[in-house]
Design a protein around this nucleic acid. Structure first.
Length: 258
DNA sequence: GCAATTGTTGGGAG
DNA sequence: GCTCCCAACAATTG
């Protein structure tokens, strides 16, 4: 599920509920989601601390406390959420933090990523690793220099070390709306095309953040990309699909020329 | 049974 | 060093 818009939705929901809440107890129901810590260490370090305002960088959700920092990367299927203690539990709940009011829960079907614990900001940066500027704030110049390399456009945009926050659906949607073929080499793009990619990215992200996901809006590629004989919502010609970086890639061969 | 899934990592080839 | 491809992680759905 999560790309930048989903994670930003998680962050906004938690920003309303989490700050000021104190951890009373840590219940790890499946330690398969703990990446650099253990159930004991998580409890020992978090209990007694109060959460402050949540942040986001790319697909990383950063939950600082007045002590250590809890990091969440949702992978394909993870979702952190706040719930009243009495609220029904969901399937695949892996970790529950009991708070002085309510609970912070982490649900994750596939457990591809999970939770990290960092003692301070440097440790936080270390856990996140090499990561480019956030796709939501990157300026036009910074975007152009991020793409100043010989890789394929799709591959570069998907690489979190280049630009943080874009996933498979978003990159296809942005390339399609900007009418640039995802197989093109970045360094072969004209300034107009780079500019169009940047402006389109901002527009697609703003709309997606409003929906908390990449929405299947009428006139968007995302609405039709999984159809059997998918057709371009603009020119109605057949869409092409193949794999780039092991991910299904969909584009319109008429409007996004190679 | 088979393929596919909105993510990332590490290894190996070129 | 860069780029690309693959397998692996895991569990479910069509």
């Amino acid at each position: 599920m999560p790309e930048l818009p989903d994670v930003e939705g998680f962050r906004r929901a938690l920003a309303d509920t989490l700050p000021g809440r104190r951890v009373r107890e840590v219940d790890v129901r499946d330690q398969g989601v703990l990446r650099n810590t253990t159930a004991r260490a998580l409890a020992r370090n978090l209990v007694g601390h109060r959460f402050t305002a949540p942040r986001r960088h790319g697909k990383w959700l950063i939950l600082p406390t007045d002590g250590p920092i809890l990091l969440v990367h949702s992978g394909m299927t993870g979702r952190p959420y706040y719930a009243p203690s009495a609220a029904a539990h969901e399937r695949f709940e892996r970790v529950v933090l009991d708070l002085d009011q309510g609970e912070l829960r982490y649900v994750d079907l596939r457990k591809l990523r999970g939770l990290w614990l960092a003692a301070d900001e440097p440790a936080c940066a270390d856990a996140i690793g090499p990561v480019g500027p956030d796709a939501l704030d990157i300026g036009a110049d910074e975007f152009a220099s991020a793409l100043d390399r010989p890789r394929r456009l799709k591959s570069a945009c998907m690489d979190q070390a280049v630009i943080a926050g874009l996933g498979n659906l978003l990159v296809d949607e942005i390339c399609w709306q900007a009418r640039v073929n995802p197989h093109r080499r970045c360094s072969a793009l004209g300034p107009d095309e780079v500019h169009r990619m940047h402006a389109t990215m901002r527009r697609v992200l703003r709309t997606s953040v409003r929906h908390g996901r990449v929405p299947a809006l009428r006139g968007w590629l995302t609405r039709v990309r999984d159809d059997v004989n998918a057709r371009c919502p603009r020119c109605h010609g057949p869409l092409d699909r193949d794999r780039v970086n092991g991910r299904t890639t969909v584009w319109c061969p008429r409007e996004q020329r190679g």
